[in-house]
Nucleic acid binder design. Structure first.
Lengths: 229, 229, 229, 229
DNA sequence: AATGAATGAGTGTTCATTCAT
DNA sequence: AATGAATGAACACTCATTCAT
């Protein structure tokens, strides 16, 4: 259980400073290390020492810059959300036709989760904590208010053009898109046992993405016009 | 003990015994308490003392009956899976026509998650641990092997009757059904902020279930027969 | 560290009684088991559970018959001393000529220690406890008073016959005999490393006994009569 | 920590710091305290808390500097052996004539044991553990290999000069010297009862040392030359 | 007489946090 | 700004002992 946290009995006297005075860099390194540690172990499971080690700074600096473990955790969720919101903002789906925009959106969500496992795990952790820190964060509450309309806009255009079924609830669709991507990654460990499949192989990933796109398209697909028959 | 440092054990004056001599009940109470505690706080976050308090037994008994915290945790996942597998087994979907069976399945999954939040949280926790304890458990590995074919059978019948689209991958569909139910609950805390909605209100729950049924039906729905046109 | 103390979650219901009502046998089995456990682990290191397991009785019986752990420990030292005193009493060295009696005594001490390692370890343990339990024991204090004169008598006879040097302090000699036998066994673990020798092999044991006999004889050997020269 | 069960760490109002910032001193104090505690109570009987109290440091530092209880115990045996080996090395017996060297050696062993009761008790403890930690220690295994030849050299010189009997096994003699000094102290508690003597009084100690020197000299004393007769 | 379930007081160890340099 | 020694409050786990059957 001690997990290699070897204790050095005597630190090399005259120990050279590992990282000369670059407060900004130190903060970034701490935050990056914290993302990894919290994502891997949750809030209570994460170790301040482990973060300091990973960041290659003195533990004291964490308290200097972030106050305490919980505040650091909060900074981590904020960062992780800021990142995905930035990526979303860079999408410019409004330039694509609705059909393609929807495909692009699903693909984006899928790919983002694939490439940012720390986002999923942090989100899981935060939900286990009943979003306590999300709620505490002014930054996040404000960000949430401004970051929604991705699906709304696509649905509106598709509906207007008559190529999407009318009356689809954008929140429901948005939730569904997220669900079918998110779950695959977050529950991959147990699912791969239950379904006895290698879920992270390239073909498996492609198959799932294709299925998800199909699902979303099936949802928005209009009823066949009965008058044609 | 040595050398006169003897500590006299006070015989707990007037200590009332709370639960006399019911080993089976004790074990059940411990397990129930453990489900709650682990579900609420994860493996590392859970406190053995808290479990003992909740179970109203002496902490020592936990070790008597389950060995240690990790073993207790494993017993908890096993129980939680056993429960859902039992409920699944009681469904007898094969007696329903495929369409209704599918609806019943989605409804079952949805309702089970709604009524057993501890299952979701335990599953989350276990996935954060990369399914370490699931993998260790012979009971679970064997159970997983025998409990799958719910969706398979429905799809086969629906396809045979020509009312479902052909060639649907049952694993993908199964994953999707789970995803669209699971995510709603597991990420309800953050989602309700992001979408600023009360997600656990009765109408919200009904809306979501309806949407999910629709989604699944849309997936299996056959292409309109072009020859008819 | 748990050392195979596997916990049986459910004892076989209707467990057959392992040992039917033989209180005398139970007491003996407890005592024998206790000798082994205390000898192996000392007072604080010994486990009441381990003793019960070894004795194949219910732990409760230990308290029934002996009161508590310390009282059992005391019973163990008493037994261990009673045994060696009995063996000493059976020696009847007074029938041998002094020279042979001395050799027989050394051989007896040596052999007894060799065949009763539990005596040495118990004696060690008790000395670590500053003889607290020896002192408490009326039986032992009385026994000690009556068991001394083995060496005294031999020395007197040898001196009277002129074959032993005069004025040898019997207590010193007795201590020396004990020392040169005892230490070899009690400190065998470290000594075998320090001297890098296999100390418990048959030839090694024989060599040591021979050396010890020689030593004792050298001690009692009279000065060569200067008048003869 | 999760879910508002936060425990506020009280900053120990007005807590005076007893030992400010002297890591080297802290380590020494811990080690000294540990020697006493382990010597008095053995490995399992020793209490980490007691060591911390004796050392007047925070218990946490013990783990900081030594890792855990067993590692601290190992450090203690190493220290205790290092000390006696250093003292041995400072003897320079080779400058004395063989006869005097032997007397000096016995006197040294005797005096060292008298003045360092913790060495004897630690050695006892370690032997009860079957030298497990001695064996684990590279330092000790190497030290043992280099520290032997004290008796060898004396015997060789004495034999060469014709004042010692020929063919004495140095290991046996060395063991005997150690035995006759060691046992007196280690088993003093029980012996003083059995022989009903005050063994630690000054005259008693002197009598024993004299007897021991005599014993060793008797062992090495050559046979009277028969040709002279 | 015999059993095993139940108890309370430790015991080794870890952790977030602060103090002194 | 940066370091690492020091602290106190837990936490998982164990043990001798007693109660109920």
């Amino acid at each position: 259980m001690t997990d290699g946290k070897q204790v050095e009995t005597k630190p090399a006297s005259g120990a050279r400073r590992r990282h000369p005075r670059r407060p900004d860099l130190s903060q970034i390194r701490i935050l990056d290390a914290a993302v990894m540690e919290f994502a891997a172990n949750g809030l209570s499971g994460a170790r301040v020492d482990a973060i300091a080690d990973r960041a290659e700074i003195n533990k004291r600096m964490i308290y200097q810059y972030f106050g305490n473990k919980e505040a650091l955790y909060q900074a981590v969720i904020e960062k992780v959300y800021r990142d995905i919101w930035e990526a979303e903002a860079a999408l410019s789906l409004e330039e694509l036709p609705p059909h393609e925009a929807l495909i692009a959106l699903v693909t984006f969500v899928w790919t983002y989760y694939l490439e940012h496992p720390e986002f999923i795990t942090m989100l899981n952790t935060e939900n286990q904590l009943k979003a306590a820190y999300f709620r505490k964060s002014r930054v996040l509450r404000e960000g949430a208010a401004n970051s929604r309309p991705l699906v709304d806009e696509i649905l509106q255009r598709g509906e207007a053009e008559g190529i999407f079924r009318a009356g689809i609830d954008p929140t429901q669709l948005s939730l569904t898109i997220t669900s079918i991507c998110y779950y695959y990654f977050t529950n991959q460990a147990t699912s791969s046992i239950v379904y006895s499949e290698r879920m992270m192989s390239k073909p498996a990933l492609e198959r799932r993405l294709a299925f998800n796109i199909q699902t979303v398209l099936a949802i928005v697909k209009p009823e066949p016009d009965p008058s044609v028959r």
